[in-house]
């Protein structure tokens, strides 16, 4: 998840159905999806619920070896 300016207020990210570990920067993950996986982006339940948060979901599928 890439912040759109404000790193404190960006959407939360969850990945279900894949094995994931931290990648090379703070908001990234490397994931292996042996089966179909799901990506969820949601608003934090903490803080101002009326405030819209922005970000960019960046997905890179590595090239075939």
């Amino acid at each position: 998840m890439l912040p759109d300016g404000d790193e404190q207020h960006m959407p939360r990210l969850a990945i279900v159905g894949a094995y994931c570990g931290p990648a090379l920067d703070t908001h990234s993950f490397f994931c292996l999806a042996k089966r179909d996986a799901s990506v969820f982006v949601y608003h934090s339940r903490v803080g101002d619920q009326t405030r819209e948060v922005n970000g960019t979901l960046a997905v890179w599928r590595q090239p075939q070896p």
Binding site: D4, D36, Q49, T56, V59
Partner: peptide, 28 residues
Amino acid sequence: PGQHLAVPVQVRGGDMRQWRLAASPELY
């Protein structure tokens, strides 16, 4: 495989968006 895609996202309190990624021998 090899593609880089960026999807802009905006969510308010209680909102959630979901996408499905296909099973893959390559890492995401």
